[in-house]
Amino acid sequence: MMQSVANPVVNEEVKTESDLADAAKIRYLSADNTVFSKTPGNMLSVKVAEEEHPTVYVHCSFPHTNKRIYLSIRTIENKEIGMIRSLDDFSKEMADLLEEQVQIRYFAPEITNVVAVKQEFGYSYWEAETTAGLCRFTVRDGGGNAKMVSDKRLLITDVDGNRFIIADLERLSDREYRMVEMCM
């Protein structure tokens, strides 16, 4: 029974996909039609064909799994100018510029070495070497403040909502893991 209908189902799926794309009407930006530039005020501006936007922001669709694909270019009013399928579609110079914007938006020091985590009274006090220097911060226990956002990536949110990342839990030493585990 399943076998006999296998083919039509596949066909239909292909059709659905193109239908979806038609329905979604997402505008994809490519190197041919789009030029990004940095303003003197250090902001990002974009020119798509004849359309110019003085300040735009770069949002990642997958900030934890891949920051280089499916970037959404948006205005401050959250209106989408268009999407970028992959940074690889752009010149290195342009890609660097966009990556810099991603860095600005998704600022989260990446923890390279957990120095100490001390738990007390519903809070844990972290001391960790990060890509932005030695950070000391306070995390409220529970409530998903230290949560896995992919198989091995841990996102830690402190009392103010500041974010810290452990990119790969498996790379932690046993000693570090023991401390971190108690906060998860």
């Binding site: 303003t39 003197p40 250090n42 998704y106 989260a108």
Partner: peptide
């Protein structure tokens, strides 16, 4: 104005053109 980033923010000052005046963490 403030531009909300993920877990931080930018202060943007507009004279003739907008410019980033400073950035701060969420606190």
């Amino acid at each position: 104005s403030i531009v909300n980033l993920v877990a931080s923010g930018l202060i943007v000052v507009k004279e003739t053109e907008e410019r980033i005046a400073a950035a701060f963490t969420n606190g």
